[in-house]
Design a protein around this nucleic acid. Structure first.
Lengths: 250, 250
DNA sequence: CGTCGATTTGAAAGCATTCAAGATCAGTGG
DNA sequence: CCACTGATCTTGAATGCTTTCAAATCGACG
């Protein structure tokens, strides 16, 4: 199981050196985050409580079980959320891309650990500040309920994948989903850049690294994708990929 | 794949014959549902928009993809939520017990189908009525965000189970979780009554019915549980069951 | 007592995993 | 510029566990 060097904890993450305040007006992911619930003239309420954080690749943002003091928005980069069993088995429960958030914990502690995959920029909010914002602006809370509902639906799709799909169906679903989410924040979906390792993909799809690699090879052999580089996927036959992802072909 | 006769659709479900209004003051699951967010003297606001529904075992409440017009609270009985692939493979994404809710869809349609396992009583709300209640009482929406967050955390635990746990770990986790939830609404956790079939358990745990059966046999052989009846589980060694569920033993 | 469905058990097969070895790539220093 | 090194990824072969296929048992119900 991959274990990379990690540093820091949520409260210790370096604040971005520059300006003490943030200008949300220029944020390219604002329309994706819960911030979208507020009108432009209300953004100062967010700017008053947000902190900017930059973390290099492989940084531990927080660990499962840590006190859930903060909520984070990803504005650039990528993050993996994961859970561990006692013997080291790992399940990645999600990858975060720009516009995604993490750390909303009803309970006192985080339900998963979070580590950056690549250099990543985050907006950090103290949970107590956010709760105050909810009281002032119920529409922010409504937006967060909406986003949490979307996450829950995505989690149920992932249960379908983990419980019933074959390896090639899992990988096809993963590639299409990552492509959709990449486009959502303005990235490319073809060619698609994979910010995570094969080990990460395996731990997300409930497979071994070897099976992931063999399945990539099969998709390439069948002319469905091309891999000009390990981390770059060129989709050649999207229809075939979609049929595989839906479990309609084999 | 099990396919039982089903009847009706969300809008067609019979209203309970009796009184046109409901007395939430007597509801034994009120403290579990989102209704708990309101004070006793505010319950009339719920009573004004709630409808009582009774459904016999094997009733289809709604199908995946149906317009998400209603939200339901389970007050007695049990429900399975499931998703299907084109070729009939099924993944059960959750079992509902008294106090649980379903149908909250940010999107226009339900993300899963719902069928009763046993005779079940439901409170039904029109989504539009509920949204109006949110506006009048933000604390109801807060409570629903809290419950949805709990569901998301449970879904992530299930991802860990489906992606990385062995069959005996899956079944142990399932039995303990069902026991906890049974106690929550006032039921017994030992002996524990299983309202669902082996096929349902298999489709929930990402296994085949035969593997579920063999795993029950193993737990019984090892003296960890007893099965006086097919649907009744007597836990004999809770500590061992907990160790198995956590992946600390084999 | 007989039938039908659900569950359990047995035996064989298939497929992902495990174990092992190569290949590729990025970074480092000669 | 190139060899060296370590990590990541790919490929091969064998193992083993779950699945598949098949049959027996159990239980509810008429």
């Amino acid at each position: 199981m991959e274990r990379m060097a990690v540093t820091g904890a949520a409260a210790a993450l370096c604040r971005h050196g520059g300006s003490p305040t943030t200008d949300c007006g220029y944020c390219r992911t604002r329309h994706l985050a819960f911030c979208a619930a507020l009108e432009p003239h209300e953004l100062s309420e967010i700017e008053a409580i947000v902190g900017q954080v930059h973390a290099p690749a492989g940084t531990e943002i927080f660990m499962e079980g840590d006190p859930a003091d903060h909520v984070f928005n990803v504005t650039s980069g990528a993050v993996r959320l994961y859970k561990l069993l006692a013997d080291g088995r790992r399940q990645i429960v999600g990858f975060l891309l720009p516009g995604d958030f993490m750390g909303l914990a009803v309970r006192r502690t985080y339900a998963y650990g979070a580590e950056t995959l690549i250099p990543t920029d985050l907006c950090r909010f103290r949970a107590s500040d956010l709760r105050a914002l909810f009281r002032a602006h119920p529409k922010v809370e409504r937006r967060l309920l909406e986003m949490t509902g979307d996450e829950l639906a995505a989690a149920q799709e992932q249960m379908m994948l983990l419980g019933r799909k074959t390896p090639v169906e899992r990988l096809s679903t993963f590639l299409l989903d990552l492509g959709r989410r990449s486009r959502r924040w303005g990235g490319s979906d073809n060619p698609l850049h994979l910010p995570m390792s094969r080990t990460d993909i395996a731990d997300y799809l409930g497979l071994t690294i070897e099976t992931v690699s063999r399945t990539f090879t099969r998709l390439r052999r069948d002319g469905i994708v091309d891999l000009p580089e390990t981390q770059i996927v060129q989709v050649r036959d999207r229809t075939a990929l979609e049929r595989l992802a839906a479990g309609e072909a084999e």
